[in-house]
Amino acid sequence: MNEIPVIIDRLSESFLLNCQLFALTLIFSLPLGLVIAFGSMSRFYPLRWLSRTFVWIIRGTPLMLQLIIIFYAPGLLDMSFTWPNGASGRFVAAVVAFVINYACYFSEIFRGGIESIPKGQYEAGQVLGMTKTQIFFKVILLQVVKRILPPVGNEVITLVKDTSLARIIANKEIIMMAGEYSSKGLIWPLFATGIYFLIFVGALTLLLGWFEKKLSYFRA
């Protein structure tokens, strides 16, 4: 019985990896998603085609497969580029795969949000002599943020649980850790992992709700 605190300690420690992967993915995929969204809306056809094809490929294949390809391809194809050795290399590869994958999903949410803003908002800014950049950042962006908060919240919550997929390239995240116990016949740690995810998602839900309330002072 006295090994329970030890197991909980090790689970918590491995959940830290899930948290780090989650945070890094968000930090990089949100801005990258915006860039891809602009690519998908570009008036320059080759760029639009490239962006949309890329999104199709990334959304059209499993994240698990992307993890495997991104991690093993440099070695298998004999590229000069290789991931760093050991755990850090596996983690960086996972971050890269997650960022690319989530950026594509975010880009479609952003595109939908941006395209849903009435043309009149742009025109009002234009006739007042504002530049395109000013119109986007001072007028459009906050309205977009307000509109896309629910679908972005959905993606963010999915991301929390998707971080577990990183174990496919041997990142020691929480489910992989619990799996080591269950393979020895101890099943409760696996069930316990659910509690970690539930608490994390619970906190996120509160945060998203708070944010939504913050933006409820206007209607768009």
Binding site: G120, Q121, V127, G129, Q143, R219, A220
Partner: peptide, 21 residues
């Protein structure tokens, strides 16, 4: 165009106020 359009002001049929301000 940006400079010159300020010779004109336009009031729209459906106002187009900025909702967040």
């Amino acid at each position: 165009v940006r400079k010159k359009r300020l010779h004109f002001g336009l009031v729209f049929q459906n106002f187009n106020l900025f909702p967040q301000y």
